[in-house]
Design a protein around this nucleic acid. Structure first.
Length: 442
RNA sequence: GUGGCUGUAGCUCAAUUGGUUAGAGUACUGGAUUGUGAUUCCAGGGGUUGGGGGUUCAAGUCCCCUCAGCCACCCCA
């Protein structure tokens, strides 16, 4: 009869072991560095907010499936994204921020959705947004940040899909389908997945559109080819709609500018079917898929919005931003076996021969750390074979060996684990030779 | 939130038509090898078969509930 509590985590919530957490922290650092390289500044906001802030006046939280509960008499909820809190933040601190304002925020969010591969109830988003400007330069920059981010993480084969809501909205208006735009776009979004026929069927079933109107919209499904070709094919479709033409021109500008900086068709594709994302997107929209694992979904999406803080402020706040799904990306990298099996944060292990020499080892370790080399001293004077095994399993780069013989001779043996080579170096001058040798190879 | 599939050592999997003390590989710990890691050999620890209930002389195998994972919706990172 056991009254122990069974240790377990809630559905969609997970623990992160070192082999997962080490690359996870590295990803966050990479994102941070890329954002900073464009001048984005960090902010943070609370995990918990008043429900009315997160779901608006009507309290229509049905879609978002957020974690919501009463805290005494307060109706509160956990944030489900970082964009809504940014809107509140901007409205609250607007006058102090100065515009344009570029911020990044790397933080966990919570959604009560049913989990699946790459979909969790708690996951970290890495958001970056530029608010207070409608310039197309921000649209371009957003695409470049996504590109840099993916490259910096180590991806070559990825596709940033780009579209413009104005093209879509213009064409819908032209076809007389503005009323049903949400439903029509939702169906259109499934085009690559379920095909033209199924999309047409869904549109006819969920809206009161006529066959003719549906055919009109689905002319979009016929465009194909390179970005230049797609843009040219869209030209006649957009004629007659000022809005659509404006969107098309913006699309062209972004594509051209990104190409000028080296982002080519292999990583950036115009995709007229992408429409999703929150309802508030009004211009350029981005989604990013991994060519080797498209089923995991978009790992980085975003877009332009006209008025972010409409719920909280009378001041109009246009902007554009996107969000990297860190945990989804990590799940994808895990599936693609892209994660190193490193289980150490130090690169050098100092073997311990006898506890009599512990001080020597500590001094040695300190000397290495002072030159920026993360070093671990093995805690027990165990058999040397076991200490090597430990170093090998954890993924250390090198083992330092200093037994009585070496210490007397003022020498240190450095064994490089990758190739098994061993070098004897002097321990004089506070291990200068050792630190230099290591620094040159790490 | 709706519908479906799955669940056996840390991991990958076994276990005749329900039939005795649930096995193997690998990983882990120690030894062979008292100063050298991916080889070899030996030994050891680790499972109330996700949890609970039911049917049966007998359940890892069948039924129900629950929890978790996965898939399709929904939605989205």
């Amino acid at each position: 009869m056991s009254n122990l509590i069974k240790p377990r985590t809630l559905k969609g919530f997970r623990d992160y072991l070192p082999e997962m957490m080490i690359p996870r922290e590295r990803l966050m650092e990479t994102a941070r560095n890329v954002y900073r390289s464009y001048g984005f500044v960090p902010i943070d906001t609370p995990a918990l907010e008043l429900s009315e802030i997160l779901c608006g006046k009507g309290g229509e939280e049905t879609d978002r499936q957020m974690f919501r509960f009463m805290n005494g008499k307060r109706d509160v909820a956990m944030r489900f994204d970082l964009t809504v809190p940014l809107a509140r933040f901007a409205a609250e601190h607007g006058s102090n921020l100065g515009l344009p304002f570029k911020r990044y925020q790397i933080a966990p969010v919570w959604r009560g959705e049913r989990p699946q591969a790459g979909r969790f109830r708690e996951f970290v988003q890495c958001d970056f947004d530029t608010i207070g400007t409608t310039s197309i330069a921000s649209d371009i920059e957003t695409g470049l940040v996504i590109f840099d981010l993916m490259k910096a993480i180590g991806f070559e084969k990825f596709s940033i899909r780009i579209n413009n809501r104005k093209v879509l909205n213009g064409l819908l208006a032209k076809a007389g389908l503005s009323e049903a735009s949400v439903l029509v776009l939702r169906a259109l979004d499934k085009l690559p997945k379920i095909g033209r026929e199924a999309v047409a069927k869904e549109m006819l079933e969920t809206t009161d559109a006529t066959q003719q109107q549906v055919d009109e919209v689905l002319k979009l499904s016929e465009v194909s080819g390179t970005n230049a070709e797609v843009l040219d094919q869209l030209e006649p479709l957009c004629s007659g709609s000022e809005l659509a033409q404006e969107g098309l021109a913006q699309l062209r500008q972004v594509i051209t500018a990104m190409a000028a900086v080296g982002v080519t068709d292999s990583n950036l594709q115009v995709d007229v079917s992408i429409a999703r994302g929150l309802d508030y997107y009004t211009g350029t929209i981005y989604e990013t898929f991994l060519d080797d694992l498209p089923s995991i979904g978009s790992v980085c999406s975003g877009g332009r919005y006209d008025n972010l803080a409409a719920l909280y402020s009378k001041q109009e706040l246009p902007g554009i931003g996107a969000s990297l799904g860190l945990d989804r990306l990590l799940a994808a990298m895990d599936q693609l076996k892209m994660l190193p099996e490193t289980r150490t944060t130090a690169s050098v292990l100092i073997a311990q021969f006898s506890d009599q020499q512990l001080q020597t080892y500590l001094q040695m370790a300190q000397a290495l750390r002072e030159s920026g080399i993360a070093t671990e001293v093995f805690p027990d004077a165990k058999k040397i074979a076991q200490q090597f095994k430990y170093a090998d399993r954890r993924g250390f780069d090198a083992v330092l060996i200093a037994g009585d013989d070496e210490i007397v001779a003022e020498k240190v043996q450095v064994k490089w684990l990758a190739d098994g080579s061993q070098t004897e170096l002097s321990s004089a001058e506070n291990y200068r030779e050792v630190t230099q040798w290591l620094a040159s190879r790490l």
